[in-house]
Amino acid sequence: SVSPMAYEAQFFGFTPQTCVLRVYIAFQDYLFEIMQVVENVILKKLEAVPGCKVSPLRIRKCTEKFFVFMKEQFNKLFSNLETVLLQLVLSIPPNVLLPEDKVHEQYPYSKEQFQVLQGEVQELQRQCRAEAAAGQALRAELEEQKVVQAELEKILQWFAGLESICREHGTSSVKESFTFLTQNSKKLQDVLKDVEKKSR
């Protein structure tokens, strides 16, 4: 099986095999192209030779012979080239980590560990929302308290006002004044009874 060399592809932007193939094609294509040029040049030279008995077909066979030989040599040489390129030049040693993958070594989290972390984050989010709601409720209660305090203080002020009116009219203690009034009324009643009795 062929190693996909995916990590190398991540680094280079192409697979090492592609690069090697490009080199192979460069050699092969130009070998073929130049052989064609050589053949055409030879044919042109032959045309200039009067009474030439060498046919273009024969030249074609010579070209093919030379081309096949060169290709065979090239294929033998290329297998070494391919080995060197794939193993030494275009490969990333196993101990090398690409910079963009540093995060995986810094944070080697398994799926389970990640889920735990995600769970913790969700719980924190829930707690933050709950605390925000609690804060709102506490602030709302403070506002309510202001209203209730104001009402209660108004009632206390009303009591103070009532007591102040009594004092202004010479009654520092309503209870004492009322008792005094009641006693005096009783005394008055007794005097009236006396007077009535004496006048009879």
Binding site: L31, L46, F66
Partner: peptide, 18 residues
Amino acid sequence: KLVAAGSYERFASCYRCF
């Protein structure tokens, strides 16, 4: 090595008629 393989002798031997 490819150039060495495609020597003049080899070339001439293939294109003997020419």
